Each structure stands twice: as structure tokens, then as C-alpha cells.
Simulated assay, not measured.
Amino acid sequence: MGNDNRRHVVPNEDGGWDVKAPGASRASAHTGTQAEAEARAKEIVRNAGGGEVVIHGRDGLIRDSDTVAPGNDPNPPRDKKH
């Protein structure tokens, strides 16, 4: 099914935020803030050829996701034609 390069930004139970691949037991990266973790996740995905970054809130629930080029955005923005 092509490139399934994903990283999740999740809260770390000891504080800070982790960047994890799906099913991984260890984090790819650990940062102090969610914004830093999101930036690092996007860098990792971009360097691997693009894919999805999924951002979780402090409650662990998904709150956002972002496609990193040249990934395949499942919900691309619509062209605004007037």
C-alpha cells in the first residue's frame, strides 16, 4: 500500500512528549514540549520520504494530524474557486 511512514506525538507519563512509530515500544525522540515533538516528528517523517504525523492531546486522544510531503494527504484542502 505504498509508504506508510507515520509518527505519533504522545505525552510521556514522566513528563514531556515522545515521538513514536506505531507499535514501537521505544520513542524515536523525547522533547520537553508538544510543539518541539511535533517539529521533530515532521523532520523524521520528511527525512524518510514523507508520511503522516498524528498529534495526541494530554488525554492521549488524537487531536490533529498532518501530512508531510511528499506523503499522500487523505484530506487535501479544497481549491477555492470563486
Rank of each mutant, 00 (worst) to 15 (best):
I44E: 12
P70F: 01
G57V: 05
H82Q: 10
I44P: 00
K81S: 14
Q34V: 01
R78N: 08
P74T: 08
G60K: 01
G71L: 02
G23W: 11
K20T: 09
N75G: 07
V9M: 02
D18H: 05
H30K: 12
N75T: 13
A41L: 12
V9F: 03
T67I: 07
D14R: 14
A21I: 11
P74D: 13
K20L: 12
A39M: 04
G51R: 05
I55G: 05
D18E: 13
T67D: 09
A35N: 11
G32N: 09
K81N: 07
V19H: 13
P11G: 03
I55L: 10
R46Q: 15
G50V: 02
A21D: 09
A21H: 08
D14L: 10
R40L: 07
G49P: 02
R46L: 05
A35P: 00
I62F: 00
P11W: 03
N5D: 08
P70D: 11
R78M: 09
G71P: 00
T33H: 04
K20Q: 13
D73R: 03
A21W: 07
D73P: 01
M1S: 13
G60Y: 03
K80L: 13
E36K: 12
R78T: 04
V45Y: 08
S25Q: 15
T33D: 06
P11C: 05
R7F: 07
I44C: 01
G16C: 00
P22A: 15
G50H: 03
R6Y: 13
R58F: 01
V54Y: 04
S25R: 10
N72G: 02
S65T: 11
G2E: 14
D73K: 03
E13V: 06
S25P: 01
E38K: 09
D18Q: 14
P70Y: 04
G16D: 04
R78L: 08
H8P: 04
D79Q: 14
R63L: 01
K42C: 09
